[in-house]
């Protein structure tokens, strides 16, 4: 029973989360004393496909049907399930991105497999079961989930598993004719990519602000800091509710859950619903005028001070640091 990883591509490119999934699959296969193969859908250049070898993937099945260039869950599930059955995969690994979230449940049903969505660590083997750690209650807890079926599907939370380099020779098998037009149930009419800023769900560094910033006209300070750092911008719920910022920046229990390496919270009180979406961040910096703001309870570093004074200073310090490093 080998491990198969679905490596998602975006316009022919693999993002970091895709390599994390590949790394995870390789380490899991080693634990299970088997090998890891990958499946790639649509048109991806051979050099890009071969880059998976750097992380220990020995075999890649490329389902090259051009129809698969745009992601559609129904057709993608069919293609991945067919490859998984073909190689006798015992575990299918994918990323818990929007793409993975659309694909994993369908795949699990097709393979009659137990699904662990949003794993944060490598599983433990327990007889035939896998024990997978995942977050529950919006980051307020963890659960060890036992996957009790013969075939298993695991989707992993981006930025929770480190890349492990382990270069091997890689074999590429091209397949065609796996899907037909009838397998595509939803038709993509338009794709609007975020341009000019780093997508929040992929960001390793995030600068976020709340009502303490007083109004949308002050957000240039937040954006300047984010630009200086190479960070994405985020906000609290009231800020997006009042249309100071777009909805896709709202983080928290009812917004996006993120897990960056660094989260800088400026003028955000740290309500439990906000923290639920960001407490998985590796390092948290809070800047708030109120020394009793709840955010300081989960922050690693704190500055009690006025954002309007701290932000320009911090921006300057970051710019200086970046110039020197």
């Amino acid at each position: 029973m080998s491990v198969l990883v679905f490596v998602e591509n975006h316009a022919g490119q693999f993002k970091k989360a895709a390599y994390e999934a590949a790394s995870y699959a390789v380490q899991l296969a080693a634990q299970m004393q088997t090998t890891a193969a990958a499946v790639v859908l649509g048109t991806v250049a051979e050099d890009t496909v071969r880059s998976l070898g750097k992380y220990g993937i020995q075999k890649v099945v490329c389902v090259q049907d051009a129809l698969l260039d745009g992601f559609e869950a129904h057709a993608a599930a069919k293609a991945v399930a067919e490859v998984a059955k073909g190689i006798g995969a015992g575990v299918v690994v994918l990323s818990n991105t929007y793409t993975g979230k659309a694909l994993a449940p369908r795949l699990a049903v097709k393979l009659q497999a137990a699904l662990a969505a949003g794993a944060v660590e490598l599983p433990e083997l327990n007889g035939q079961d896998l024990m997978v750690k995942r977050t529950v209650f919006s980051n307020k807890g963890f659960a060890d989930l036992a996957l009790k079926t013969a075939v298993k599907v695991i989707s992993i939370t981006p930025n929770s598993y480190k890349l492990v380099e382990n270069e091997v020779a890689i074999e590429v098998e091209n397949r065609n004719g796996v899907v037909s037009a009838a397998d595509f149930k939803a038709k993509v009419v338009e794709v609007k990519k975020v341009t000019g800023k780093i997508p929040l769900t992929e960001a390793e560094l995030v600068v976020s602000a709340g009502r303490g910033l007083k109004g949308p006209e002050n957000w240039h300070m937040v954006e300047n800091l984010a630009n200086a750092l190479g960070a994405a911008t985020a906000c609290s719920k009231p800020v997006s509710d009042m249309h100071w910022r777009p909805h896709d920046e709202h983080v928290g229990q009812t917004g996006i859950t993120i897990k960056p390496n660094l989260y800088i919270a400026i003028g955000i009180s740290g309500a439990i619903q906000h923290l639920a979406g960001v407490s998985g961040s590796k390092v948290i910096v809070a800047i708030n005028t109120d020394k009793d703001a709840p955010f300081f309870k989960i922050a690693d570093y704190g500055i009690v001070g006025d954002a309007f004074e701290v932000l320009p200073k911090l921006n300057e310090a970051i710019t200086k640091f970046k110039a020197a490093n």
Binding site: A108, G141, D144, A146, F296, D300, I303, D306
Partner: peptide, 25 residues
């Protein structure tokens, strides 16, 4: 298909290290 065998709370944070406004560098 699945069963939770155990729950856990996130590890407690070590505590916040406070810096002055003048200490941004």
């Amino acid at each position: 298909h699945t069963e939770v065998s155990e729950y856990a709370l996130p590890a407690a944070k070590a505590g916040c290290r406070f810096l002055e406004v003048s200490e941004v560098e």
